[in-house]
């Protein structure tokens, strides 16, 4: 369980998160939505301890995470942009992360699923954006951690890989994990998410199910519901 209370974050003069309080229960898929620059990534990075908030508190399973690092062994994270050191190969990268975590990983199964065998001995600098994203996915899914944080996982994926990704996420949900996803693809949210957290200008505008959001904005499909919220708040 993640409990966030009164989270404030400013980058220079820009207030990215303005007193965000949020509780995310265990188990299920939680979609964090919001327009560009609404603070989704900052919120996620605060949970990971990569961004250090000015105020507020984040607890994971009852433990305050500030200044701690060990809790991250229970989190798998997929960064928004797949950026890796250019001069190492895919295998070296995977082995490095496995070595750092010192844990069992099911990387071969994932490599197989995303068809990465031909690229294993290639340097990461020479891979295409989509292939890098697949490597990114392998790294994020290869450990069996109870909390998964996926920052725009669909970026640059071909339709087949997208289907694989959806299957993977469903499988993780069935295994009883908590999955946080940010995305701009509403179709993905509608089919996958158990609950939505809608961020707007650094505040939580809405938290609830897809059906509740539709009801609130009086629209039948999610895309229009979100568009209505955004135009009402301009």
């Amino acid at each position: 369980m993640i409990e966030i209370t009164g989270l404030h974050k400013k980058f220079g003069k820009v207030e990215v998160l303005d007193s965000v309080s949020l509780t995310i229960a265990d188990k299920g898929i939680f979609a964090i939505l919001g327009p560009n620059g609404s603070g989704k990534t900052t919120l996620i990075k605060s949970i990971l301890g990569m961004v250090i908030p000015q105020q507020g508190e984040i607890k994971i399973d009852g433990e305050v995470i500030k200044g701690k690092y060990d809790y991250r062994k229970n989190i798998d994270y997929l960064p928004q942009i797949a950026r890796f050191p250019d001069n190492i190969t895919v295998t070296e990268l995977i082995n490095m992360i496995k070595n750092l975590r010192n844990r069992q990983a099911n990387d071969t199964e994932l490599i197989d699923m995303f068809g990465l065998e031909p690229f294993l001995d290639k340097k990461l600098g020479n891979l295409s954006g989509g292939t890098k994203q697949k490597v990114n996915l392998v790294l994020a899914f290869m450990f069996d951690s109870p909390l998964l944080i996926l920052d725009e996982p669909t970026t640059g994926l071909d339709p087949v890989s997208l289907l694989h990704l959806k299957d993977l996420i469903r499988k993780e949900r069935e295994a009883g994990k908590t999955i946080l996803i940010t995305t701009h693809i509403m179709d993905f949210v509608e089919t996958m998410a158990d609950e939505i957290v809608f961020l707007l200008e650094g505040n939580i505008y809405f938290k609830g199910t897809v059906a509740e959001l539709k009801q609130k904005s009086d629209r039948n499909d999610l895309e229009h519901a979100i568009a209505t919220i955004l135009s009402e708040n301009k």
């Binding site: 990569m50 960064p79 950026r83 050191p85 992360i97």
Partner: peptide, 11 residues
Amino acid sequence: EFTELLLAQPI
């Protein structure tokens, strides 16, 4: 890039 990768690990 390497640093960001490491920051998400339990280190």
